[in-house]
Design a protein around this nucleic acid. Structure first.
Length: 275
DNA sequence: CCGGAGGCCTGATGGC
DNA sequence: TGCCATCAGGCCTCCG
């Protein structure tokens, strides 16, 4: 579910709620796979440690631990949320951390895909992630280098976390629409002006998503919300995603849907021609 | 190198 | 109302 803007928003919300500086005094695991399969080992590793800070890398939430140093690595996958609450009960809680201020940090995940694992080091994780699209280092030239290496479909490349970190299905479709590029274009076929457009579009849709506190699409339990229960409002700024059959907001042509790389893909056949 | 299928999971939705 | 198929914001592994 959550992509980079939703993960970013989650972290900001947790920081604002004062998670940094809290000490973990215990851990409870309802679904062993959530923590990597060894609940006792996980609880033993995190108990007593202080949460120093929170960072994002790609779609990962990284909680840096101190005394001694280490990391809690959270990935929300499709339906996960982190809840910071004084109430540790409720359905779909797969793991919870008891904090020293009577609150709990709960990993809520109806589909049980989300993960919260302990790591001594992030080296292995960071090796598998491409550049951050909103960092200054992500220039049009860097994007050109990423695209040059492959004939795979643009949509597939945007979703490949090893090439660019943080983009998911919503923002991939939105970026390609904004850039006016067909999702099936071979990545290496883009001309410099098209690369420049895609670069700007990626940053634009991600910035907008962050400004809007994320996209709360979906239904009920699958709907993204912040740790305090608030919803994002980026769904109001979505141009193509899940608008199959509805008129394109640029030209009125019905939006079409196709499957690329096993993922549902939405685009305007008039504004995003293959050429 | 690449694409496709299947797996992991549960819930919502739409057609009949 | 009930049943069934389909779909879902992610990512991994296996196979050809």
């Amino acid at each position: 579910m959550p992509e980079m803007p939703e993960v970013h928003t989650t972290i900001q919300s947790l920081l604002q709620a004062g998670l940094a500086g809290r000490r973990i005094i215990g851990a409870e695991v309802e679904w062993p796979r959530t923590v990597g399969g060894d609940p006792q080992g996980f609880a033993g590793a995190v108990r007593g440690r202080r949460i120093d800070g929170l960072q994002r890398r790609g779609k990962y939430i990284l909680l840096s631990l101190a005394e001694p140093a280490g990391w809690l690595v959270v990935h929300l996958r499709m339906s996960g949320r982190l809840l910071l609450t004084s109430d540790d009960s409720g359905p779909y809680i797969r793991a919870r951390l008891q904090l020293d201020d009577r609150r709990w940090l709960c990993l809520y995940a109806p589909r049980r895909f989300a993960r919260m694992e302990y790591r001594d080091t992030l080296v292995e994780l960071l090796q598998r992630l491409g550049p951050e699209p909103l960092e200054p280092g992500f220039t049009p030239d860097v994007l050109a280098g990423i695209l040059a290496g492959t004939r795979r479909a643009l949509k597939t490349v945007l979703l490949d976390q090893q090439r660019i970190a943080g983009i998911g299905n919503i923002y991939a479709d939105e970026a390609l629409f904004e850039a006016g590029l067909h999702p099936q274009r071979p990545a290496a076929s883009l001309q410099p002006p098209e690369i420049a457009r895609l670069h700007a579009a990626i940053q634009s849709v991600l910035h907008r998503g962050i400004r809007n506190l994320g996209t709360s699409l979906g239904h009920g339990k699958a709907n993204f919300s912040l740790p305090d229960g608030e919803s994002g409002r980026n769904q109001e700024d979505i141009r193509v995603f899940r608008r199959t059959g509805l008129p394109c907001l640029n030209c009125g042509t019905p939006i079409e849907r196709m499957i690329i790389g096993q993922r549902s893909t939405h685009y305007c056949p008039a504004c995003q021609q293959y050429l």
